[in-house]
């Protein structure tokens, strides 16, 4: 198939690997869309057509998914995408304040991408980590209890590109125990 989208060899290989895992090709749609979106940032009409062809579907079969699922995009988010949980448990711990702090400090309105494309901000529904709210996801990492002064400090570190490795903002993912103990 013609590589109109200029997808990397790695993404193409991943697509070739994932499609045959399903009893029916159409089932692979979401997974293929994720792979394309992860590389291109969004799934535009050309991408829809390409994916549809790959799965022997009509472009509308892909388009209707992009327009339904909240995490699928026709336009890309910013280079750093910040998600704040909006739902009640997080709101009860101050997530509306967190979102406002981020709007001010990152210079972008909720639901939008900053003009320079650097940051985007999104208020999301429950991220299934409600015990440690307000929950914030930056790209793929989940940060907990981001509220009040911690939210301000978090945004400062994020803006300075210094968030990684800061102990008090260790993400849920990085806190997992990966060690293999002795026998």
């Amino acid at each position: 198939m013609e590589n109109l989208l200029k997808l990397s060899a790695e993404t193409l290989a991943k697509i070739d690997e994932v499609v045959p895992k399903y009893p029916q090709k159409r089932s692979a749609a979401l997974m293929v869309i994720h792979l394309v979106q992860d590389e291109l940032g969004a799934v535009d009409d050309t991408a829809c057509e390409w994916i549809a062809k790959r799965l022997e579907l009509q472009p509308i079969n892909i388009k209707e998914l992009i327009t339904f699922y909240p995490m699928l995009r026709e336009n890309p988010w910013g280079r750093k995408h910040v998600r704040v949980c909006r739902t009640l448990p997080c709101a009860l711990r101050g997530s509306y304040g967190t979102c406002k702090t981020f709007e001010k400090m990152l210079g972008v309105k909720e639901g939008h991408v900053r003009e320079d494309g650097e940051y985007s901000l999104e208020f999301m529904e429950c991220l299934a980590d409600c015990g440690q709210g307000p929950v914030v996801i930056v790209d793929e990492k989940t940060y907990e209890n981001i509220e009040g002064e911690r939210a301000t400090k978090f945004a400062e570190l994020l803006l300075d590109g210094k968030l990684d490795g800061v102990e008090e903002f260790k993400s849920y993912e990085e806190s997992l125990n990966q060690q293999i103990p002795k026998q």
């Binding site: 895992k21 399903y22 029916q24 090709k25 159409r26 089932s27 692979a28 749609a29 979401l30 997974m31 869309i33 994720h34 799965l55 579907l57 079969n61 209707e64 998914l65 339904f68 699922y69 909240p70 995490m71 699928l72 999301m124 529904e125 429950c126």
Partner: peptide
């Protein structure tokens, strides 16, 4: 065989028949 299938941020995919439709590649 066991395959991990990712959703895309829609709560209704937790409802089992919605989940099945989603796994079939549909809305």
């Amino acid at each position: 065989d066991l395959v991990v299938h990712r959703g895309a941020g829609a709560y209704i995919c937790g409802e089992e028949t919605g989940l099945i439709e989603s796994l079939e590649g549909k809305r």
